[in-house]
Simulated assay, not measured.
Amino acid sequence: MEGTAIPYKMLSLDPFSQWLGIEILECEIGKCKLGMTVRPEMLNSMQKAHGGITYSLADTAFGFAVNTNGRFAVSIETSINHIEALEAGDYITAEATLESLKNKIGFYIVEIKKENTLVALFKGVAYRTGKEWEDN
């Protein structure tokens, strides 16, 4: 399967990411940029976006990017630093970029931004299986 088509297939099979309203903005091998709008039901008790919302967008961008290399890959370690609070109506993007790729391990950085402002930074390590993505 063509690597840049894999994130679209993954999104079509992912009801959680669909519920979040995630859209694919750009996709190339080793890189994926997603966007979404923070909705009122995504806020915490302080009326700010729950940290899990930013994390989920970043984790999805990471997952999509690491799979563009054509092999099934899953996260084995991730972390996030929250820098700025978000509110309902904010449109945010997450851009995952390959930093290092080995036979079994991939390391990615994901920048989460509101407009041009960095609001969170996510780091992820993925395990790459031997199973390849297929068109069906």
Rank of each mutant, 00 (worst) to 15 (best):
K102I: 02
E87A: 13
A61E: 05
L34V: 09
S56T: 12
K102A: 14
G52C: 06
I112P: 00
E115G: 05
K48E: 14
T54M: 05
T117C: 00
N67C: 09
M10A: 15
E26A: 05
G63L: 02
S45N: 12
L20I: 11
D59V: 05
Y55P: 00
F107K: 11
S79D: 09
E134M: 11
K33I: 02
T37H: 01
Y127P: 01
L13E: 15
A5Y: 02
G35I: 01
Y55W: 10
W133T: 11
A85D: 14
G3L: 02
I24E: 05
T93N: 00
D90H: 13
G35T: 13
H82Q: 05
G52Y: 08
L121T: 10
L11P: 07
Q18R: 15
L98H: 10
L13A: 14
T4Q: 04
S17L: 01
N136I: 12
S45Q: 13
H82Y: 14
I76G: 13
G130E: 15
T97G: 02
I83N: 03
N67H: 09
T37R: 12
V74Q: 02
Y55D: 06
T60M: 01
G21H: 10
S56W: 02
V38Q: 04
T93K: 00
W19K: 15
I92G: 03
G70K: 07
D90L: 04
N69F: 11
Y91F: 07
G3M: 06
L11D: 10
N81L: 00
E28Y: 01
E84A: 09
T37E: 04
K131I: 14
Y91N: 08
T54V: 13
W133H: 14
E132D: 11
G130A: 13
A85Q: 08
F62Q: 07
R39Y: 08
I109K: 15
V38Y: 06
M10Q: 15
I53Q: 04
M46V: 14
L43S: 15
G63K: 06
L57G: 09
I76R: 06
I92K: 02
E115T: 12
L20V: 12
Y108A: 12
Q47M: 14
G35S: 12
F72T: 15
D14K: 03
G51F: 04
K31T: 09
Y108T: 13
E28T: 13
T4N: 05
S17M: 09
Q47P: 03
M46C: 08
Y8A: 12
Y55F: 15
A61I: 03
E77V: 06
E26V: 02
Y108D: 04
L86Q: 14
K48P: 00
T54G: 05
T117K: 08
A49L: 07
L25P: 00
E84F: 03
H50V: 07
E41C: 08
F64P: 01
K104W: 03
G63H: 07
E84M: 05
